[in-house]
Simulated scan of single mutants.
Amino acid sequence: MRDFRKYNIWKLSHSFTLKVYDITKHYPKDEIYGIISQLRRASSSIPTNISEGCGRDSDSEFNRFLTIALGSASEVEYLIILSKDLNYIDENSYINLNEEVNIIKRKIYSLKQKLKK
């Protein structure tokens, strides 16, 4: 069994999730059951799936959960574009969040490739 806390990608995605929760506090209240909820769920799904995958028995199972985490990261990427286009976040926040989520996506992909070897 792997310790998910030792994975840099888990640490990055957990930190990213905390940022998403913080920034969505400033979204319009009528989005509480809409984009706020979806963005928070998708962002927290990234470290959650990494954690769950670490508790599995094989590299192939871990890889499957990394694939799910990668899908969640792509969902977050779209939702931050939507947030920017709806003027819920400014351009600078968008750039920072987009850069972070793409770093996370690249690192997940890299880890998936290492597990295949």
Rank of each mutant, 00 (worst) to 15 (best):
R106S: 05
D3C: 06
R56W: 11
Y27K: 02
Q113K: 15
D59H: 12
E99D: 09
R41H: 11
Y33Q: 08
R5C: 01
N49M: 11
E99V: 05
I50R: 04
I36A: 02
S13F: 09
K19L: 08
R64Y: 12
G55S: 12
L115T: 09
S58M: 11
N63G: 01
S74M: 14
R56A: 02
Y109R: 07
G71W: 07
E99G: 01
E75C: 13
S74P: 04
S44M: 13
L115D: 08
D90A: 04
G55I: 10
L70M: 11
I32P: 03
K114P: 09
K105H: 04
T67Q: 14
I104R: 04
N8T: 12
K107E: 06
R40A: 00
I50C: 03
S15N: 15
I108R: 05
R5T: 13
S72Q: 14
D30A: 08
T17A: 15
D22N: 13
V76M: 03
E77L: 12
Y27G: 02
S83Y: 09
Y21R: 03
Y7I: 10
K29I: 14
Y27V: 04
P28C: 06
Y109G: 00
I81V: 15
N8W: 04
I108C: 06
S60L: 11
I95S: 01
D59V: 03
L70D: 08
K29Y: 11
E91L: 14
K19N: 14
I89M: 06
R40Y: 00
Y78W: 14
R5G: 00
E31K: 07
E31M: 06
S74A: 15
Q38H: 07
L18M: 14
Y27P: 01
I32F: 10
S58L: 10
I46A: 09
A73H: 09
H26E: 13
Y7G: 00
H14M: 13
G53I: 12
Y109L: 07
P28Q: 12
E100V: 00
S83A: 15
N92V: 06
D57W: 11
S60C: 03
L18F: 05
N92G: 00
N96D: 09
S74D: 14
